[in-house]
Simulated assay, not measured.
Amino acid sequence: MIEVRRAGPADCSGMAEILNEIIDAGGTTALTEPVSARALRDWMQAPGRSAWHVAVNDAGEITGFQWLGDMDYLPPEAIDIATFVKRGQSGLGIGSALFTATRSAAISLGATWINANIRADNEGGLAYYQSRGFRTYDRWEGYRMANGQIVDKILKRYDLD
């Protein structure tokens, strides 16, 4: 069974572990450098709108997390989403359970739509957001990541009305 709850500072180590495994594997996130629990705590406490949720299994282990936050390139009615599921745990309903809570949080934060910014080579991420009802509205070609790698990005939108 998957329990979804709001994330707090005590969850940052587990979230950093999941994220760093994904970063290390490469190919699905625009993040290129490992993140610390401290960095995640700082992001969580940064000014602006945000919501963080974790998925926890029966053993109490974090199996995934999702966050919402403001991004400079988005209009004020939009909020950005990022989703991370522990490697090897995709397809078990973790992302679906997280999105239920995150969607409600986006409405509570006053957003009218959610933006997902996905690497074009991230087939799993593209399929996940498509299955939630996100639709493509833009493509950024030749996006330079922090490590110098060039990728295309697909922007998808989920209307909350």
Rank of each mutant, 00 (worst) to 15 (best):
G95M: 10
G95Y: 09
G95T: 07
G95L: 11
S96E: 06
S96R: 10
A97N: 06
A97R: 09
L98Y: 09
L98G: 05
F99Q: 08
A101Y: 13
T102E: 10
R103V: 02
R103E: 03
R103M: 03
S104N: 13
G110C: 02
A111Q: 10
A111W: 07
I114N: 00
I118K: 01
I118F: 04
R119T: 06
A120I: 13
N122L: 08
N122M: 07
E123G: 14
G124K: 15
G124S: 14
G125Y: 07
G125V: 05
G125M: 11
L126F: 07
A127F: 06
Y128S: 01
Y129E: 03
Y129S: 01
Q130Y: 07
R132A: 13
G133F: 09
G133T: 09
R135V: 15
R135F: 11
T136L: 09
T136W: 01
T136D: 04
Y137G: 04
Y137I: 15
R139E: 04
R139G: 01
R139P: 00
R139D: 01
W140R: 14
E141F: 05
E141T: 03
G142T: 06
Y143K: 13
R144D: 03
A146W: 00
A146L: 10
Q149C: 01
V151T: 15
D152T: 08
D152C: 10
D152Y: 08
K153C: 07
K153M: 14
L155N: 03
K156T: 04
R157F: 05
D159V: 06
D161S: 11
D161Q: 07
